[in-house]
Design a binder for these strands. Sequence first.
DNA 1: CGACACGATGTCACGACATGACATCGGGGC
DNA 2: GCCCCGATGTCATGTCGTGACATCGTGTCG
Lengths: 196, 196
Amino acid sequence: MPRWEHGSEERLTQAALDLFAEQGFEDTSVLQIADRARVTPRTFFRYFSDKREVLFAHADELRGELLRRVVEAPDVGDPLAVVVEALSGFDWGSRDREVQRRRQALIVANTELLERELVKNAAMAEDFAGALQRRGVGARSARLAARVGSQIFLVAYEEWLAADHGSADLAAVTDEVMASFRAVAPQARSVPGAGS
Amino acid sequence: MPRWEHGSEERLTQAALDLFAEQGFEDTSVLQIADRARVTPRTFFRYFSDKREVLFAHADELRGELLRRVVEAPDVGDPLAVVVEALSGFDWGSRDREVQRRRQALIVANTELLERELVKNAAMAEDFAGALQRRGVGARSARLAARVGSQIFLVAYEEWLAADHGSADLAAVTDEVMASFRAVAPQARSVPGAGS
DNA sequence: CGACACGATGTCACGACATGACATCGGGGC
DNA sequence: GCCCCGATGTCATGTCGTGACATCGTGTCG
């Protein structure tokens, strides 16, 4: 028989999420998590670089997945649309929405977690910008499309998560948000007669 | 004569900035800062809630100032323009540009600092959204304008900081970035014939 | 079959960050 | 001239995160 139980990482993840739900993130110590998972705190830090990372463990795969969607977009003539579509077209529904809601609630309730979230989002936007650039979009346009597109999507994502159970799907919400955005940025003004 | 030297906060700030410049943020401990400022570490934490805050001490006043510019904008018919103008029209030049450059360099070089920066930026965008909403802009449009406008400005601000000494002023760079943004978001497509 | 390298975990020690509780004492107000 | 207040110090403590090294099942290779 093994010297220790297998599945330390899973036990740690589960223990952490349970404790966060029970007593909040701040009031949960790594020692508590480790105890509940029947390992030492040192082991916790072998799997997670810090306490926050438990909640972002899968973010890196997700990031790669989403980046691929930009890299493989059929056409980058409308970079903003590419970014928004890469994000909104992803199958978020396949993840349990209630889980996402709880996770988001934890994050916005805690500055430390929000910090981590914002950095990950910013890093992803940077990835997007790089990908767009490699596909021929100018540096400045690529950064604008990546950052603005991410914000537009995030507004939609937050509305979608907040919405009552069973309402419209994310793609639909995103379309609505994009429409609102067009109304908010009446850019035609600066090029009065220009069609195309 | 006073029991202790006056000006602890100033000495702490100066000591911290010097040490950060000399050895970087991570490799500077609060103990070192306090020693150099001739106070105890406990005193450091009475003035700064944590080690990072030294670099963000004035951010709150700035935030209020910028928010006021949104609140007092003459017209909110084009909320995106209001946000961008509130940010870009502020007199950043009155602050030493070289100081801003060094500060920015410290921040992007260190994840902890970047986290703090992003949270402050996000909070400011939230403020903007609230202000726009109180002035009659719809909730969703307000959030979009605030967040997207902030990103657009940040792209411009970063370009401006990075630019060679003596080049165009921030407002001009912002105009250029706005122009690029219009090119990146060819929104006319969805409302083919619609004039305002 | 037995030696041995590997990998997951434990143990220990430590430094840094952050905060609460209480002590100290100079200076300014009454 | 007394007394309170505010700025600072002192001490103790809890938590986070990391380096160094020990332990010992397991699977592999000869």
